[in-house]
Design a protein around this nucleic acid. Structure first.
Length: 280
DNA sequence: GATCAGGTTTGCA
DNA sequence: TGCAAACCTGAT
């Protein structure tokens, strides 16, 4: 158990920001979240604005989770890219204060975002959870029974019929293809980690079911390429309505981070205004 | 029950 | 090169 004061950290915003699918509120406890990252389990309690308690040891924090939450970086440096006159982005950044771009495992990100196509966040969560139950290693701890994210080898060994109960539908073929390529070494995710952004995206896009959106999400959330901005329908609407279809040049180096604030804001605003599909 | 979902592939002009 | 239809199924 570990207690920390963190200035720019919001489990609620991170869990809802659509970048990961295995972090969720624990409803039986106040201000509490849990997550699986690979085979690691973590529980987080928010005790005050900046006061947190974590279920891991100091060693596991230092070795893994501190980096996982990108806490070695000061996000005010990213927010400083905001143009003085950009009131919209200012509102998004204030709204999403505490968002981090996680250092997720590239393979986990790839599989998760292959599933994400044409699916809502709750549906993706359900599918990932069931996939883990079917092919992931069981994990027992003081908080209950869980399943690790299935390894590429475990997934590759599955048949389409075994994965059908996940509800992933036609995406199952995409998942199996990708898992088999990772397991066989045909696709070396560690190896392509050194490629420049554009080449990384184009290698990922050779996978079946991996178009520009899924490749961009994998690059941003799995490879931490902060200049890459996944353009989905929400971000297209923001880009069109707020930026006349062109991102400000100055934003390019950290557009992925700025995008995350905008996406989070736009998604929750849209939910409120069902009649008027405009973002204010 | 209908409609849509944070897309991609395929087929056809 | 551009566009629409088809794809599976859960969530609302």
């Amino acid at each position: 158990m570990l207690r920390l004061t963190l200035e720019d950290f919001s489990p609620a915003a991170i869990a809802e920001s659509g970048q990961c699918f295995r972090m969720r509120p624990v409803h039986t406890e106040e201000q509490c979240w849990e997550l699986m990252a690979g085979r690691r389990y973590l529980r987080i309690w928010q005790l005050g604005d900046q006061e947190f308690q974590f279920s891991c040891s100091e060693e596991e924090w230092a070795d893994f989770f501190r980096h996982y939450f990108d806490l070695d970086v000061d996000y005010s440096a990213y927010r400083a890219y905001c143009l003085e006159e950009d009131e919209f982005l200012k509102r998004c950044m204030s709204y999403g204060q505490g968002i981090r771009i996680l250092h997720q495992d590239p393979y986990e990100a790839l599989i998760s975002f292959l599933i994400s196509q044409r699916k809502s966040v709750p549906a993706i969560r359900t599918i990932v959870e069931r996939m883990s139950e079917i092919a992931g290693e069981p994990i027992e701890n003081a908080y209950g029974s869980f399943h690790a994210f299935p390894s590429a080898e475990a997934l590759a060994a599955c048949s389409i019929d075994e994965l059908r109960p996940t509800g992933a539908g036609y995406r199952i073929g995409y998942i199996l293809d990708a898992a088999r390529q990772c397991a066989s070494g045909e696709l070396d995710l560690d190896g392509i980690g050194t490629l420049p952004d554009k080449e990384l995206i184009s290698v990922l896009m050779k996978l079946r079911g991996c178009g520009i959106k899924v490749a961009s999400c994998t690059a941003l959330f799995g490879f931490h390429r902060l200049g890459i901005c996944p353009q989905d329908v929400w971000m297209n609407r923001v880009l069109h309505e707020k930026y006349q279809d062109i991102w400000p040049q100055q934003y390019q180096p950290v557009l992925g981070v700025l995008q995350q604030y905008m996406f989070h804001y736009a998604r929750l605003e849209m939910r409120k205004t069902t009649n008027n599909r405009r973002i204010s």
